[in-house]
């Protein structure tokens, strides 16, 4: 979806404040939100792509609040949408009826190491790779209304394949409860002038990871 989250190349957000010397969580509730996130993932309530799509679907004014605040907004909606609590319970701040059985069971101390380590998104190859390193490719000019990881700023532009990553879970279907649908994943590098025009920094190269359905041969 062409949402506020897809902000590569936008103007208007001002300068970067480069100072952040900690703490890790600037307010205690931010750490609590992180913990909730890991729990909901670990018990199988939703996967990472569904989680990201949940954030993207927030109204832009909520998206633009802060990183952990939008996680909170997403949780309140997703927990209800996926049947882990009801809206009246969220409002009351307490469980009013028993919970459902999560697909991966209750989250306990034994799960800590598992959730603080990234999983693998690689899946067995479903077909030969369509592209090879060095191939020129076109990022398709597509505008799905649903979750995608092809940023707007590369769509319709040509780049070159610089790395193959094997087949990975395809976020565009995984986010929509339509399965992992593994696809070849490539790093595709673009020239800054192709993306931003003749006035671009001539030394700039920008790469994205692009799934095979995002690309066409040139």
């Amino acid at each position: 979806m062409n949402g506020i989250h897809d902000m590569g190349g936008m103007d208007g957000f001002g300068s970067v404040d480069p100072v952040d010397t900690g703490p890790v969580f600037h307010e205690a509730w931010e750490g609590d939100v992180m913990a909730i996130s890991r729990v909901m993932g670990a018990i199988g309530a939703w996967n990472i792509d569904q989680g990201r799509y949940g954030i993207e679907m927030l109204p832009p004014q909520l998206y633009l609040t802060s990183y952990y605040r939008r996680w909170l907004e997403r949780f309140e909606r997703a927990i209800v949408a996926r049947g882990y609590a009801d809206a009246d319970e969220i409002a009351a701040g307490h469980a009013l009826r028993p919970g459902k059985t999560p697909p991966k069971g209750k989250f306990t101390l034994a799960d800590i190491e598992r959730v603080t380590r990234r999983g693998s998104f690689t899946r067995p190859e479903t077909a030969p790779a369509r592209f090879a390193v060095g191939d020129r490719v076109l990022a398709r000019n597509i505008h799905p209304k649903t979750h995608t990881r092809l940023p707007r700023y590369v769509r319709g532009h040509e780049g070159v394949v610089v790395r193959l990553h094997g087949c990975h879970v395809f976020p565009d279907t995984e986010a929509m409860d339509q399965g992992e649908n593994p696809q070849w994943l490539y790093t595709v590098q673009f020239d800054g002038r192709d993306l931003w025009g003749a006035d671009s920094d001539p030394t700039l190269k920008v790469s994205v990871e692009a799934f095979e359905p995002y690309l066409e041969p040139v």
Partner: peptide
């Protein structure tokens, strides 16, 4: 609001409170 979600996760049996603290 964060506390409300934490409370619900614990009361519904989705998470052990000590495990929430251990993540942080």
């Amino acid at each position: 609001r964060v506390r409300a979600l934490q409370t619900i996760l614990i009361e519904k049996g989705y998470a052990d409170p000590a495990a929430l603290d251990a993540i942080v």
